[in-house]
């Protein structure tokens, strides 16, 4: 017998990717998974293949979270979104690896995507308490009335994440929904869902209330259909829907007059997510509420100075 044991190579622990619904990490109720591969078709992991039931459960969770999240002060929502940026920054290495594998990017290019995603959270953290002054305001009506228009979140938003940009694209469509005070049900990129599922772990540790963001992986068409037709969903972002599907979903969304954000171009996914996002992803999910109140009259002009 030898004195020394043979040196063994430590076997790494694989991660089981799960959905993120209601602040928890369930498997798909259907028990299904599908294999996710990298850009060279090498297997990476199994992802849960979410079902129609998972989508409906996610809507219930998002609706439940809406009161609390939309009722939080804009300042508080900004703090929470900034906290997401802090958490994401701390896990940059992990996301760089996942984005590189998912999108077939070099490490440097993937790292740039992750940095841009962190900055995107910071950008929207700053919008929570500013959009009201940009999109709302006092209306000088021709009468003795105080008249003020303020934006309010529309409710539960279904978000079809971009198919190609697995993290920056995802953050670019999710963060504005949260910034407005809406809650989200996100359908991750079908072929590149792993960064999205890992983002759920970041959100869970960032003071984002459970249910404010719900992340599903699976077949986009299968998950999008029940969301587009769901009577308790207020808006749908079709960014990640292929062209034919987008038309179908928009038609289904008309049934309860969902607010619809169409894909940027016919390809459905040609959007350049590194560009300045502006406010075009905030306003579609805001309702404008105008309040009238009589000002009465004192019958005097008061002092002119």
């Amino acid at each position: 017998m030898s004195d020394k044991p043979e040196p063994t190579v430590r076997l790494s622990v694989f991660k089981t990717y799960k959905l993120y619904v209601g602040g928890k990490f369930p498997r798909s109720e259907s028990g299904r998974v599908y294999e996710v591969t990298d850009s060279k078709d090498r297997p990476l992991a199994n992802a849960p293949q979410g079902s129609r039931k998972d989508a409906r459960d996610a809507v219930v969770a998002a609706r439940k979270a809406f009161g609390g999240w939309s009722g939080a002060t804009a300042y508080n929502r900004g703090q929470v979104l900034y906290r997401v940026a802090e958490m994401l920054e701390g896990r940059a290495d992990q996301f760089t690896r996942e984005v590189a594998e998912a999108e077939g990017l070099s490490r440097a290019k993937a790292a740039a995507q992750v940095s841009a995603a962190v900055d995107r959270w910071v950008w929207y953290a700053g919008w929570t308490d500013k959009i009201a002054q940009v999109a709302g305001g006092a209306n000088p009506v021709a009468g003795p009335f105080f008249n003020l228009s303020s934006p309010e979140p529309t409710g539960v938003v279904a978000v079809l994440a971009p198919q190609r940009s697995s993290l920056l694209g995802l953050v670019s469509v999710l963060a504005p929904v949260l910034a407005t005070g809406c809650t989200a049900v996100v359908v991750a990129s079908e072929d590149r869902p792993l960064p999205a599922l890992t983002l759920g772990e970041v959100l869970a540790t960032s003071d984002v209330p459970g249910g404010a963001v719900n992340i599903l992986s699976g077949r986009t068409a299968e998950l999008a259909a029940p969301l587009a037709a769901h009577q308790d969903v207020n808006a749908i972002d079709l960014t990640g829907a292929p062209a034919e599907l987008a038309v179908e979903l928009e038609r289904a969304a008309a049934d309860n007059l969902k607010r619809v954000l169409r894909p940027a171009d016919a390809e459905g996914d040609g959007e350049d997510f590194t560009a300045d996002p502006g406010i075009r992803r905030l306003t579609p999910f805001l309702e404008t509420k105008t309040v009238w109140h009589p000002t009465g009259s004192l019958g005097v002009s008061g002092s002119a100075y």
Partner: peptide, 14 residues
């Protein structure tokens, strides 16, 4: 915190 958020949004300030 508030004005930090304006630094990259000046073009939207009117």
């Amino acid at each position: 915190f508030y004005y930090a958020g304006w630094a990259d949004k000046l073009a939207h300030a009117g």
